[in-house]
Simulated scan of single mutants.
Amino acid sequence: MQFGIFTVGDLTTNPTTGHTPTEHERITAMVAIAVKAEEVGLDVFAAGEHHNPPFVPSSPTTLLGYIAAKTERIILSTATTLITTNDPVKIAEDFAMLQHVSDGRVDLMLGRGNTGPVYPWFGQDIRAGIPLALENYALLRRLWREDIVDWEGQFRTPLQGFTATPRPLDGVPPFVWHGSIRSPEIAEQAAYYGDGFFANNIFWPKEHYQTLIGLYRARFEHYGHGAADQAIVGLGGQVFMRAKSQDAVDEFRPYFDNAPVYGHGPSLEDFTEQTPLTVGSPQQIIDRYAGMRDFFGDYQRQLFLMDHAGLPLKTVLEQLDILGGEVVPVLRKELAKNRPAHVPDAPTHASLTAAVSAAGHAADPAPAPVRARLG
């Protein structure tokens, strides 16, 4: 079981001080947070991709490459990489390069994005979001698995005799998670290829995500990748902690009330009741997240959003100390209890390389274009 954090890189005014960090301050803070995440024993740091204010991480591979040089162990990922508006050729080359500079400590989460204006900025139409996601990923897989690619599709110019460079480290592409909060087609795509499915379980009630994850698990088994409970699932989460639960609520409330995503909407109490956001003591966080398996089955990756809504860097680093020191060690033990032996861990470069070596080749389990089940 992997535990980590993800950042959306929002540039938000601290409602308690009125201070708005500069872009440089925010980017520097994200680097410090990633380094701290490794220091406290977390497994994953993931950065989002955004091209619009109030967000700053427009180039996550640049950020992660710098973090790779400052860390030794932590897995570097994205949350998300926009498969719809990025050129698959550039994704293939950027992440292969990141594999090499990080010694394989990299995977990525693909997503469509939910900001409409971004599509025309990159020459695309949001109404083609699903077809773009399907076609671009089919090409991305080939670019990583074939040394020479001839290709023609609907959304980019054809390729003739093209080789993406550098080639993936050890001939093994990065593991891919497909991220979604609402689209069954993306769950279908993840299942078809035997990839991971990440449900960013932070906005809606659990029943919504149970439906998406249930679909993914059933179709994963349908396509012959293993039993449904062997599918590779990741979840998002949000927490804020203090030793005393009321202190956590009192401190976090102004940040919640003014957050750019959910501020000025439901009350903190309503939102914590209806979503996995948990504000309280470390034990409350442990109890809430140890119970996620009851709703979603055994899963492989749990990421927390910790540095949003204007929280100052000092507070975020304190939160990471609590998360890594008091919460995650207990959750590791709780979520390992009664975990069936046949349920796999989250793939890493080492495990994927070993699997390829055992098989004798980098087999593609689903070389044909995906035909998503839309019903």
Rank of each mutant, 00 (worst) to 15 (best):
V176N: 02
F256G: 02
A92T: 15
A341N: 15
P166I: 03
A199L: 06
G265Q: 11
A354I: 14
A46L: 04
P21A: 05
E152K: 12
T272W: 02
P174I: 03
D87L: 06
H342S: 15
R112C: 06
K333D: 07
H178M: 11
P266Y: 09
V316T: 14
T17H: 08
A309F: 00
V89Y: 09
D321P: 08
V106Y: 02
G65E: 05
L159F: 02
Q160V: 12
P60D: 03
A350G: 11
F3G: 00
P53F: 08
H208C: 04
I186R: 09
Q189A: 04
P57D: 10
P367G: 13
L64I: 07
N258H: 10
Q300I: 11
L82M: 12
G65P: 10
P347M: 00
L42E: 07
V328H: 05
Y289E: 10
H19M: 05
E39V: 11
F304A: 03
K337E: 14
P184V: 13
S351M: 12
T278E: 08
L303V: 13
R105H: 09
H50E: 11
T20G: 09
L143C: 08
A248M: 09
A243D: 09
A350W: 07
T275C: 07
S77T: 10
N52S: 15
R73G: 06
K244L: 13
T84A: 12
R242A: 10
G179M: 03
S267T: 15
A69R: 10
A350Y: 12
L63N: 02
F175V: 05
Q274W: 02
T165A: 15
V327D: 03
T315F: 10
I33Y: 04
A164K: 10
N136K: 02
P174R: 00
Q274V: 12
A359Q: 11
D307P: 04
D103K: 09
D229F: 10
T84W: 02
T20E: 14
P276L: 00
R167L: 05
I285L: 13
H222A: 08
L268R: 05
P173A: 13
M1P: 13
G48Q: 01
T28D: 10
P158V: 04
P276A: 12
F155D: 04
G196E: 13
F256R: 15
P184N: 12
G375A: 15
Q210M: 14
V149R: 01
D87T: 06
T16Y: 11
Y289D: 07
P117I: 08
G297A: 11
T85F: 04
G194D: 03
L323D: 00
R105W: 02
T22P: 07
G291E: 05
H349N: 09
S59A: 14
A218K: 03
T16R: 13
S58L: 03
D257R: 10
R73A: 08
